[in-house]
Design a protein around this nucleic acid. Structure first.
Lengths: 344, 344
DNA sequence: GCGCGGAATTGGATCGTTCCAAAATCTGCC
DNA sequence: GGCAGATTTTGGAACGATCCAATTCCGCGC
């Protein structure tokens, strides 16, 4: 019938107590007498009362939401991450404000500005590629709890910032993969794919190089190939691995998409991945388990990362003045057929 | 420094005007004189003012958010859908309140109740399997704009409800796939996979049966196989297609996951999908394009569906009293190698 | 100098809830 | 019956914005 919302005043009038008493009952205070409580609760049900958290938050000067901004929801890695975040926030009584940026730093600024107006208790941000830390600082203000996930925006002085940071253990992951290939007897191992200027690619390359040097091998420049992190571009650039006479016999790839593309490119040249050439990926996307050959890769458990991120931001909202935390999440090497090729 | 939030009062005090004037400037009203506007705007920037939309919404008795509740974010179909929803809502100045239910009707009730407290302008709901319309009606109340996506909860009297509904054209999609196989000469075609009691499976089966009958063929009971809609269970149930002597030579599958599982199961029996047996899927998940053989399937463009859902809910929020709309989204047959097998 | 009309500005009430200090009610006990 | 002390209840002022009716300001013509 009525389009009007039922308020505490309606309840108070309906059962002859004051607004303050209704409010006490709503919040489960022990103060009201049992009889009063019962009377009020009956009236709440009768009128179909719905709590207005916005009004309560306004008065209490607090917030019951956390903003989650991701660069690309249609990437399963981030979708899973978001699911983990929402799961944990929901369990803690917070609601998730979603924003997606489609990898555009400009859109990211707009999205963040809009979310800020909803007064979130904190922000979990997986920045768009090319994000600028100064611009981010501008919209986010100086006090809001912030957790940056997975990528480092440029121009962030972490030492002077209160932002938390959570990333995968890219370095260790790449080192694990490299080590695995070395154990299979490979010596000429490439690092294939990714944009060298992105922070995750830098870290993975470092892990690869360290593992190689630990085995007494200096990576040759021809073994480092840059690509867009997509299947298509990776397939197209396969040829550049085979220009020198020291052509590699195995490749650690930037991620699974690149690895799948490389395997496609290898097939086109008559090279069978897994038999003639060993390949590893990164991420363990669902497809990795069922490609031919199945892809050796690093599992990152994005959902667990999401839960971790949410817990971190809640903790920071509770105690804002502890120092910033840099977290590194473990990765797990999953060995499948694509790295079976051993050196003859 | 100060943890306190900057308010219109601070701005008003800071530049010697009243709160009302600041408010007018904030909302871009033409009333304030240019000089005043400039003065206020300078002060806003100087103090780093952030608009408090919750307070404004409270006074204006409106809402600037829409709730999006999905059953499973880690399913790429729904993740894409969510991306589309958020894109459109964001462009319209709304923020997305996210909730995920993990296919649990109980959790769905809790999530919805929590979201309702944030007073959304509307709700887009892709219900968990086994949702009950009566329970949903309870939490959602009688007046909130609601769009149900993709599945029908039980016990909903659509004729008496104001809920909008948007689903894929399941019936037509299955009919298209069936027709395609008939054209290739197949006569004994199975419908493989899915839970028969789910609304989407029912609709797809109907489309399949209608296409068969239109070609003068009565589907045999042995050609209807139920499975959990997962790759694994589908693979395990492959055998049940080949028990009678009228074994099918092709199958329309409930979705891509099932189709990929079936192809696996066929391979294990020495049958090559695409050559000895034709298979079609539904959804066009990313994997479909790169499986071996590539999977013929129905593209549903979940992102566009998300945009559509968001537009619908915004439209309804604008004009609440128009009758409920039942929308059906087109699907597109994508022909790939898995259906190349023709009847000899 | 005064009155007029339009433009610009403003004080105070309001949205739905919670906080706080004070008032009302209930106990038990002399 | 009266009174201290505890238990319950309550009115009114917040929170940060907006609405509305009323007021001030200003230029201009007579």
């Amino acid at each position: 019938m009525s389009g009007r919302r039922v308020t505490v005043t309606d309840i108070a009038l309906g059962c002859g107590v004051s607004r303050a008493t209704v409010s006490l009952v709503l919040r489960g205070s022990p103060l009201p007498a049992a009889a009063t409580r019962a009377k009020v609760e009956a009236e709440l049900k009768k009128q179909g009362y719905v709590y207005n958290r916005a009004a309560a938050n306004l008065r209490q000067r607090r917030s019951s939401s956390v903003a989650l901004v991701v660069n690309d929801l249609s990437n399963p890695f981030f979708a899973d991450f978001a699911a983990g975040v929402d799961e944990t926030l929901g369990a803690a009584g917070y609601v998730t404000l979603l924003g997606s940026t489609g990898e555009s730093p400009e859109r990211q600024q707009r999205v963040l500005a809009s979310l800020m107006e909803h007064d979130p208790a904190g922000i979990i941000l997986s920045p768009a590629e090319g994000s600028d830390g100064v611009a981010l600082g501008q919209v986010l203000g100086a006090h809001l709890p912030v957790l940056v996930f997975n990528r480092e925006p440029s121009h962030v002085r972490w030492s002077a910032s209160h932002w938390d940071y959570l990333a995968l253990d890219n370095r260790r992951g790449a080192a694990l993969a490299t080590h695995h290939l070395l154990e299979r007897g490979h010596r000429r191992i490439a690092f294939f794919g990714g944009h060298a200027e992105s922070s995750s690619c830098r870290d993975r390359r470092r892990g690869y190089a360290e593992a190689m040097r630990a085995a007494g091998i200096e990576p040759e420049p021809g073994w480092l190939v840059e690509t867009t992190p997509t299947r298509l571009d990776a397939a197209a650039r396969t040829a550049s691995l085979f220009t020198s006479k020291h052509a590699p016999t195995a490749a650690v790839c930037y991620n699974d998409a690149v690895a799948l593309g490389l395997m496609l490119g290898l097939g086109a040249r008559g090279i069978t991945a897994g038999r003639d050439f060993a390949v590893t990926g990164f991420d363990d996307i669902p497809e990795a388990a069922v490609s031919t050959p199945a892809l050796t890769t690093l599992a990152t458990d994005p959902r667990a990362r999401g839960r971790q991120a949410a817990e971190r931001i809640l903790e920071r909202a509770r105690r804002p003045d502890t120092g910033a935390v840099r977290g590194v999440a473990p990765v797990r090497l999953i060995i499948r057929a694509s790295s079976e090729a051993t050196l003859t």
